[in-house]
Amino acid sequence: MGGAVGQVRQPTALRAFAVLFSAGFRRYATYRRATLAGAFTNTVFGYVRAAVLTTAITGATVGAAVSATATGGGSSAGSGTVAGYTAGQAVTYAWISQGLIASVMLFAWNELALRVRTGDIAVDLARPVDLQWSWLAGDLGRATYLLLPRGGPPVLVGALTTGLLLPHTAWPYLLGGLSTVLAVVVSFAGRFLVNLAAFWLTEVRGLVGAYAGIGAIFGGLLIPLSWFPDWLRVIAWSTPFPAMLQVPVDVLTARVDGATAVRLVVVQLLWATTMLAAGRVMLRLATRKLVVQGG
């Protein structure tokens, strides 16, 4: 039987992964009103961001046009660019990133840290499954559920109000789909690491909040990274945060294509694997010195 047990282990691990994925999906599916409220907020913020970016670009380009006494005083927003973005591309960026934000979870997330803090982590550790693997499965389920009800409305409203500049070939969507999955994995791996800090620090809310704040800026949620000054852009691209939002948006909208797009996705893959590996090391250290809180 020994050999047979070894052989069936792989399918059973996959079965557990699939079941935990679906549990993560349905956990979020039970909260319809929260999802609706989130979608509304995502859409409102999408509108605000699209308006701000448009104003910035038309303001800058009108200013440039006046100083150069350019012809075509009625220059449309689309004709000027800021850091490579026309107004049309910028609003597309705003709406698509709003559509992904719930799935890639660039917000403060401390569910795992809370389980460490309350000691409920003991329950997770008393199961015959890998802790990181099972939480990743649940998080991918969560992201998959949130993609449509949280991501759909802002993208739809964007398409109907300002219009979106989207590619007309299949490849950017295929590669973009992969990039989005990897973005969720990188995001999870980062949140997992930050949450594990709860094994050493009893209070991680500050850390989680700071991490989410930096993530929103360096991930490209505030403004596209190409709008940053050079020095800040270099710093941002040396962190994993662009791999969580800027990259999937750029690939989906074909802002980057060809070899550049593939290279960015490979970098995402590298972030995902190294950060998951770091999470495993940290988890091992944590469980070795583990003090489960509470009785």
Binding site: A23, R26, R27, G119, D120, A122, V123, G294, G295
Partner: peptide
């Protein structure tokens, strides 16, 4: 664990 749950709270 009497004070903890191993059940999926939302499901």
């Amino acid at each position: 664990f009497g004070q903890r749950s191993q059940l999926w709270w939302d499901l």
